[in-house]
């Protein structure tokens, strides 16, 4: 065997190893989804969506938890989206490169790595106690907004960085002001990337349990929130609660609720992919 053959063999081996690595995650994911589907799919029907929680597994539903999750999702978007995007634009376009901006940058990256339960403790002290919002939907959304802000900021900056300088230069050459350039050129060109980041951040928020348990989100609420000041429960808490019950029926309920939660995140990821493709085409 000469050198060339040896190298080709190495190449082949690495290729197979790479395929194995790629499949590893996928196989486990499919195994997990399959297992959940077998356990939970027959439990899902309309009444499962519209019923209140109950001590009897077969009478229980996810109505209040689902409505709580939807409320949290909408409010978190309303709070985190403008703040995150504005901060991203500022850092990328306005801030002067210096020690301060370097410090800001490091801290934002650090924030993205802080365990979510720490945000819960922060939310409990600041929003629930000091601002006396109580364990309300608003307090929960503010806490989760803090949690996903770093992700949105980083995504916004990356998306803006990816906008070709030629577009900016052309805009300035035509006499547009900085604001006009950002509003009419940079934002539209980067919105695909920004939206992808935002939606991925929100799919993370919808699966969070720990910070919401810490701020005092409830395990049993007999009503869906009707104002941002109402108390609430969310799907992950309902799932967590059901999994710790001895009766087998609750395990099925948990599996069924996991399917609904997975559906929500899949749909959101789907929307993210759709937007990315759409905007990319536009750019070309």
């Amino acid at each position: 065997m000469n050198n060339i053959q040896k190298n080709r063999l190495k190449d082949q081996i690495f290729k197979i190893w790479g395929i194995g690595c790629t499949l590893f995650g996928l196989v486990i994911l499919f195994f997990f989804i399959g297992d959940i589907l077998i356990d939970g799919i027959q439990r899902i029907d309309w009444s499962f969506i519209t019923d209140l929680p109950s001590r009897k597994a077969e009478k229980s539903g996810i109505y209040t938890a689902l409505m709580g999750s939807i409320w949290i999702l909408c409010l978190t978007t309303v709070i985190a989206l403008p703040i995150g995007i504005a901060a991203g634009i500022y850092l990328e376009e306005y801030s002067k490169k210096g020690k301060l901006s370097a410090l800001l940058e490091i801290n934002i990256s650090n924030l993205a790595g802080v365990p979510s339960i720490i945000y819960g403790l922060l939310g409990l002290e600041v929003f629930v106690r000091i601002m006396s919002l109580g364990a309300s939907v608003l307090a929960g959304s503010l806490t989760l907004s803090l949690l996903i802000l770093p992700i949105i900021i980083v995504a916004t900056r990356e998306a803006i960085k990816a906008v070709p300088t030629s577009i900016k230069d052309a805009s300035y050459a035509l006499g547009a002001s900085k604001w006009q350039t950002i509003w009419y050129q940079i934002l539209p060109a980067s919105s695909g990337g920004i939206l992808t980041g935002v939606i991925l951040a929100l799919s993370r928020a919808v699966g969070e349990t720990a910070p919401l348990i810490v701020i005092g989100a409830l395990a049993y609420v007999p009503f869906a929130p009707s104002t941002p000041m109402d108390e609430f429960s969310v799907l992950p808490i309902q799932i967590f609660n059901w999994i710790s019950r001895p009766q087998h029926g609750f395990i099925e309920n948990a599996a069924a609720a996991i399917i609904i939660l997975l559906l929500i995140t899949f749909v959101m990821n789907g929307i993210a992919v759709y937007f990315r493709n759409k905007w990319q085409k536009k750019l070309k």
Binding site: L52, P53, S54, R55, G216, L218, A219, P222
Partner: peptide
Amino acid sequence: FPVTEAVAEEYRTEQPDVKVTIGVS
């Protein structure tokens, strides 16, 4: 929690306007 949840659930039929909420801290 499961006991209080069961009581709250039954109480709902008794007094539907009393809202009982239960946390698990």
